[in-house]
Nucleic acid binder design. Structure first.
Lengths: 208, 208
DNA sequence: GTAGTATCTGAATGGTGTTCAGATAGTATG
DNA sequence: CATACTATCTGAACACCATTCAGATACTAC
């Protein structure tokens, strides 16, 4: 088990005995560590050292390592949802063309996130942060952007009502699966644009 | 970090000093452990104890924990490929109906595996066993069954040549993504049949 | 300024991957 | 058969990990 020795030597000194906002600092350090080393290889001790605090201090804010990971997961999900909304707002307009562009950009943004931060993506979908109830995490936000996009595609006559019914499921699954397979090296990176081509072809007969 | 204490107490005695087939035994024990506790939480020491051997003995067969995990991953991929081929052979016939049934059963088999062995599925696609080259693992076997199935769908006129071009990509991605999202609790289990409905609707206009 | 409380420390426990010198047992050679 | 050789496995050690807990520290309210 090769320990990376990255970031291990940054015990950021703090001025006062009390940290101020230790919880947030711990989460940020943990995010950085996961980002670099992957969701496994996350070490509470290293996190504590990075923040400049003793390992025990962590337990004043999280009963457990799993709780820290869970909360970290929530933050990452939220960050991703923001990106999705930004991507959507970038392409205004009520035309069918605008709706189609939004759909594609939504998928692209999803993959761009996965591909640029594979370790964070693994944290989200690799069984590290358990989802409480049977539904949709608080990924509702991210899910809503897709729903809205599909509504537009239906309203502008791009997809049929029948297809609309399965829109979220098919699109989310395909984009999620392709992102997963690509970052794990089972599909080449270029495959994602092809996936989007294929998905659009399947859902409404292709480009236009 | 709650250690499960499952299987911890089975130091299977061996008769001779030499084990006989230690490597295979180690892999089998590791598979069992991953199956129960998840890919993280895999412990070489526990594996060694299960087999009835000292922790150091492992290093005579694997230079590293990661190598063990990698080899384990290969085995699991192979097991899955066998299931896929069995599922395909279960439904013979050259009709369009048979081809469509095969397609659906291929997806079902994929998901059934993921859902019945989520921890093994996580091992395969969670970044634990790094894939060497840029392509398709030795999942080629499993991939070939899909290719063959899509060829049949094209030959029997179920899908268009244009759609055929994206068949593997779209189908594999969608099934992989849905499986992933379901076992992580982001989608309900029932969603998978819906996904297949949606996928078929998208790819050739539905049940028919 | 004192009491009380939230925050953080230090040390200890038991588990982990990994290394390495040496013990053990099979195999080939005389 | 005895000896040398080699593959296989052990034991002890190291550094790191999560987690616990008694106690030290510093902020807050009275």
């Amino acid at each position: 088990m090769s320990s990376s020795n990255v970031l291990r030597s940054k015990p950021s000194q703090r001025d006062s005995y009390h940290h101020g906002d230790l919880k947030a600092a711990l989460l940020q350090a943990a995010a950085e560590l996961v980002r670099e080393n992957g969701p496994d290889h996350l070490s509470l001790r290293t996190v504590a050292t990075m923040v400049g605090v003793s390992p025990s201090a962590v337990y004043h804010y999280f009963p457990d390592k799993d709780f820290l990971v869970k909360e970290l997961g929530d933050q990452i999900f939220a960050r991703m949802a923001v990106m999705q909304q930004e991507a959507l707002s970038q392409i205004p307009g009520k035309s069918s063309r605008a709706a189609r562009l939004r759909f594609r950009e939504l998928g692209r943004t999803y993959f761009r996130w996965a591909n640029s931060e594979p370790n964070l993506f693994r944290l989200m979908f690799g069984g590290f942060c358990k989802v409480e109830k049977g539904g949709l995490h608080q990924d509702e936000d991210s899910f809503l952007t897709l729903t809205k996009c599909l509504d537009d595609l239906l309203a502008t006559g791009v997809i049929t009502p029948a297809m609309r019914k399965y829109g979220e499921l098919v699109a989310w699954s395909a984009v999620q699966g392709a992102s997963n397979l690509i970052i794990e090296g089972l599909l080449p990176e270029e495959a994602f644009e092809d996936l989007l081509d294929g998905l659009e072809l399947a859902m409404w007969g292709g480009a236009k």
